[in-house]
Design a protein around this nucleic acid. Sequence first.
DNA 1: GTCTATACTGAGATAGAC
DNA 2: GTCTATCTCAGTATAGAC
Lengths: 194, 194
Amino acid sequence: MNDTKTKLLDAAERLIGEQGFAATSLRHIISEAGVNLASVHYHFGSKDELLEAVVMRRAAPVNDRRLALLDRYEAENDGAVPVDRILEAFLFPMAQAAASNPQFVRVMGRIVSEGMIQSVLEKNFHTVLLRFTAALRKSLPALSDEEFRWRMLFMQGAMAHTMCGTPGNDFEHRIALLVRFLSGGFEASPAEVK
Amino acid sequence: MNDTKTKLLDAAERLIGEQGFAATSLRHIISEAGVNLASVHYHFGSKDELLEAVVMRRAAPVNDRRLALLDRYEAENDGAVPVDRILEAFLFPMAQAAASNPQFVRVMGRIVSEGMIQSVLEKNFHTVLLRFTAALRKSLPALSDEEFRWRMLFMQGAMAHTMCGTPGNDFEHRIALLVRFLSGGFEASPAEVK
DNA sequence: GTCTATACTGAGATAGAC
DNA sequence: GTCTATCTCAGTATAGAC
């Protein structure tokens, strides 16, 4: 691996996790990394793309584990997997990542709380989102397409806010509570059409 | 009312609603308002405080209506108000505001999606949050304090993301769906302690 | 291919004259 | 209260050394 590139990723990960993305200047990052300012644009192109690289470096294994878990649950339950299992399969690997690398989760939190979700997440989590959306849809056949889509959005907001936007380290416990809450929401009977 | 101040608030509200907070420069705002750059800092102190003033101007009536609705429901149900009524009382006035002033809701959406929630909202919505938290707590006596607090956070994330972070205009319908989902989550039986 | 030095543009903030 | 001029710092771009 290129040394300069890695130094930049490490420094950016640490500083963005601590101070946030907007509050962390490239000049601060490069001084921590001990490299030249222009190397950021040489290796990554821009500050935004540096952030994306920071995310991508850690996101891949998390998403692999998510898909593996979902595969297993689908094999075990051929057909519709219980909603809470699907949610667990999505959330648990993030908690594992948090245990081995807290910095990464902090960065994800910063991304969420600074509203860079769309740009960064949709690029890196596309397949995962498709798979999990399909699994949930299958397990919630009673909902209309419209209501299902809205409930996915509600979930998205709750997840982002909870997993990333709030400090603390006991992610496994947090996940158990979140899964319970979201299951209740998803499985609520449809709202009346007025 | 001071003319310069109002011109600044109007221009800021419009531009931030259209382009977002970060993307809207003070120089753009003042040129729309037809005033001088330094007047921003004279009247508001900083760009952040200008945003806060934009929010405060519209938030007060919404919060008044929220509290009035909650008062009514509490009087009607003396003791514990049904969870879905409480949620409605919180969300409905925002939908009304959206109908009469779409710019405001857009600004709130920008605030959420750009992660300025904590700083801005906690200042302006403090009493409202206390009242609604207390009402919900009363209606959910079976939950532990801890699980209740977490569910409040889950709700917060879902609400912010939904009400403000996603485009579209049919807020009343959206609210009906959101209330249903959140009621299901709040009323789910407690997660098992493992 | 990689790194260094330096310049450019635009941002928010501020001091001081009027 | 308002305006001009200026300051500092950000991200970005480029020219050129190795």
